[in-house]
Nucleic acid binder design. Structure first.
Length: 431
RNA sequence: UGGGGUGUAGCUCAACUGGCAGAGCGCCCGGCUGUUAACCGGGAGGUUGCAGGUUCGAAUCCUGCCGCCCCAGCCA
């Protein structure tokens, strides 16, 4: 009998086939038994009538347990009563890998227990759906930039220099050269690549040793960072809204089944089209103050403030030109208001908050050096970065998109730890 | 690092004012020919997070420690 993927069973109605997969659940009565099987391509109900099979096969079917790996041979039938419309009437089966006392039962479990069994939890319907949507978003990221002439450049994960601020860095010994740090961002490197290719992006894991314990933080997360030569802050925001709209559109277009499995209300996602609303930081402060907040100009926006601003919007919201003091040294000063920099955050709706941070970069050597010194950083470490401003400096902008935050938002899940296969958090390194 | 919560069977949770430690799921045995987290009957399964204290008696009250969850800060 030919081996067939469950997703292709519709083409084999009336034929004998063999399906290999894992047992999801079993049900049986005295003379008929059912097993739901998954093989990664889909889910299949397999039926075994006692009087149509050998005693041995019947006995073996009765002893199937959750997540046992098996191969079932039988006849493909169309049947309204089967989930998916097709089922397999089994004539024989073989247990390829038994499964005894599978920990994750069909009833509810706590998050602690589930993450302790993350390696098994990945098999459940909901987790499969999330992983497929993440996969779609990753593919869409590459497609979006490729279609627009960007070059994908990988930034280093180990670095002697540092990205933004020390203190949040994971470090390791690096031979005779002292400490190396795990990348917090690929941005500085990708700025160098932008001078080579014009439009570039990197997409990879980044690491922050922040002792954060919120639904929006991981110590290891994936970030996509484009960098565009000759783009100013406004063009940067236009790229961001086109990019996010594309990613959301792809998920809506190609992952309907998965979004349905997650019971995601897609109405808010369908509204994610350019242009997105824009609000300056100063206007945001004024609006928050008018709403009763005691926030002062100069302070960074807190989670509550962001939620307050974003909930008035259907679409993602840009907040731009933050105070220089609360932002990184590489952001370009706003020539119209030297208290601020030419940056923006992009806040996702529905309470998901910041998923993008971007800015126009400081392209003047002396101003950049002053900012580095002003923040108490060691200019020697940034020698190569300063070189970019000495040899053909250019207006350029870029941003960083947090993949897990984006996936969590699209999926409508409450915590980003489910948006990555093996989340790394302050208290979790297993599995 | 702060604030709040929680810890009882493999899992999810009950247990009144301090008075015999229980249910559902999962597992084992039996029944049922169309089940959809199947159903029905029976059974096994406990150092109540750890250490100490109060009490005739502690899952319950007190002290300390540990784990986890949520929120905040930091950020993507």
């Amino acid at each position: 009998m030919p081996f067939v993927d469950i997703r292709d069973l519709g083409r084999h109605v009336g034929q004998g086939v063999t399906v290999r997969g894992w047992v999801v659940t079993t049900r049986s009565s005295g003379k008929i038994a059912f097993a739901v099987i998954r093989d990664g391509s889909g889910y299949l109900q397999s039926v075994l009538p006692k009087n149509e099979v050998s005693e041995e096969t019947w006995t073996r079917f009765q002893t199937l347990t959750q997540e046992a790996c098996l191969s079932v041979t039988g006849l493909v039938r169309e049947d309204q009563r089967a989930p998916g419309g097709f089922e397999l009437t089994a004539s024989s089966l073989e247990v390829l890998g038994p499964s005894v006392d599978y920990p994750i039962t069909p009833k509810e479990h706590g998050t602690s227990f589930l993450f302790e069994h993350r390696h098994l939890w990945l098999r459940s319907r909901r987790q499969v759906a999330i992983a497929r949507i993440r996969h779609e978003v990753c593919q869409a990221i590459h497609d979006f930039f490729n279609e627009r002439g960007f070059v994908h450049v990988d930034s280093p994960i180990l670095s002697g220099a540092i990205g933004e601020e020390a203190g949040n860095l994971f470090s390791t010994e690096y031979f005779d050269l002292g400490k190396a740090y795990l990348a917090q961002t690929g941005q500085l490197y990708i700025e160098a690549a932008a001078a080579a290719h014009g439009k570039v992006y990197c997409f990879g894991p980044t690491f922050r040793a922040e002792k954060s314990k919120t639904r929006r933080h991981l110590t290891e997360f994936w970030m996509c960072e484009p960098e565009v030569a000759f783009a100013d802050s406004n063009e940067n925001m236009r790229l961001q809204e086109a990019f996010l709209s594309y990613l959301v559109g792809r998920a809506l277009d190609r992952r309907k089944e998965e979004l349905k499995e997650l019971e995601r209300d897609t109405t808010p996602l369908e509204q994610v089209t350019p242009p997105f609303p824009r609000m300056s930081y100063s206007d945001a402060i004024a609006q928050l103050q008018a709403g009763g907040s005691d926030i002062q100009w100069g302070r960074d926006l807190g989670a509550d403030d962001e939620t307050e601003l974003a909930k008035q919007q259907q679409k993602p919201l840009f907040v731009f030109n933050y105070p220089k003091e609360v932002k990184a040294f590489y952001m370009k000063e706003n020539p119209d208001d030297l208290r601020t920099v030419l940056n923006n955050d992009c806040l996702a709706p529905e309470g998901y908050g910041e998923i993008i941070g971007g800015s126009q970069r400081e392209d003047d050597h002396d101003r950049l050096l002053a900012r580095i010194l002003g923040q108490g950083l060691d200019p020697a470490t940034y020698g190569w970065y300063l070189d970019l401003r000495k040899y053909g400096t250019f207006v350029h902008s870029g941003f960083g998109l947090g993949l897990e935050r984006t996936v969590a938002w699209i999926c409508g899940i409450s915590h980003i730890r489910e948006a990555i296969a093996f989340p790394r958090q302050i208290h979790r390194l297993y599995p």
